[in-house]
Simulated scan of single mutants.
Amino acid sequence: MDLTGTLAIVTGAASGLGNATARLLAERGARLALIDLREEGMANLSQESGGLSISCDVADASASEAAFARILAVCGVPRMLVNCAGIAPGARIVDRGGPGSLVEFERIVRINLIGTYNWLRLAAAAMTGNVPDAEGQRGVIINTASIAAYEGQIGQAAYAASKGGVASLTLPAARELARHGIRVAAIAPGLFATPMVEAMTQEVQDRVFDVIPFPKRPGRPDEFARMVLSIIANPMANGSVFRLDAGLRMQAR
């Protein structure tokens, strides 16, 4: 897919993986629509790229529908959606006070899984009206899962469940949207140098990074962005979750 002049929506664009992805897409000629709750993180990128930025809760149906309508009115129909919006707080099933918080579990699943599905459904519906390219393709949707979907650690039950949902969503979504020429894939990153990881104590970071096979370091957000470009460029990348983890298999803690 030629990115020049094509519209890409990136959620979670204010920082981390989403910000790096949006920047690389812009460098390759794509037009941007940026979505995040934090306006300040999108301001510079929006000004640099000439893209549209909208503050929005990705899991709020009415707010997202209004944001998407604005994208259509101002920018047109997207050919790419990259869902990077997400959170990763620890949430124990049983904590010192007894049962863990159901509210916190719901919050994590709401943002990570429901937010992903919410923007997938909006983008897919719009993409069905795109003129197909030479491959018959009308759009590409890339979601962000996590290796926690497969090897969630203690304290990650909610996060792992939410990202497991994103991983499980990939194939049925790809199968359903295939008749419209829309591909759906996901990336399951390991440990990346994002605000989520940087929030860990140095002791925890050192312990976790020590078990990464090679390269023995956290991934860089631009490396995630390059994987996004690889999936966009390869028509055969469809219906799969691609691990991007330097060979890491997470331990229980």
Rank of each mutant, 00 (worst) to 15 (best):
E39K: 09
N118A: 11
A167T: 07
A145M: 05
G139T: 01
R138L: 01
G50E: 01
A237S: 10
R226V: 05
D245N: 11
A237N: 07
E106C: 08
D2V: 10
G51S: 10
R121S: 15
R179I: 10
S146A: 13
G16Y: 03
F105Y: 13
N19R: 14
P189D: 08
D57F: 11
Y117S: 14
I87V: 15
S62D: 13
A69S: 15
V94M: 11
R253N: 14
S240N: 14
L244S: 08
V103H: 15
A167D: 10
G190F: 05
G100I: 07
A59K: 00
V131C: 06
L229M: 12
G16H: 00
L229Q: 02
E39F: 10
E203H: 13
F105Q: 04
R121Y: 14
G115S: 12
E40V: 09
S101H: 15
A85S: 09
P213G: 07
R217S: 13
R183E: 08
L177M: 02
I154E: 14
V241H: 08
A13P: 04
A158C: 07
R220F: 08
Y159D: 06
P213M: 11
D133N: 11
A193M: 12
I9L: 06
L52C: 12
L171Y: 10
P89H: 06
Y150L: 11
G190Q: 04
I187C: 09
A199K: 09
E203K: 10
R138A: 04
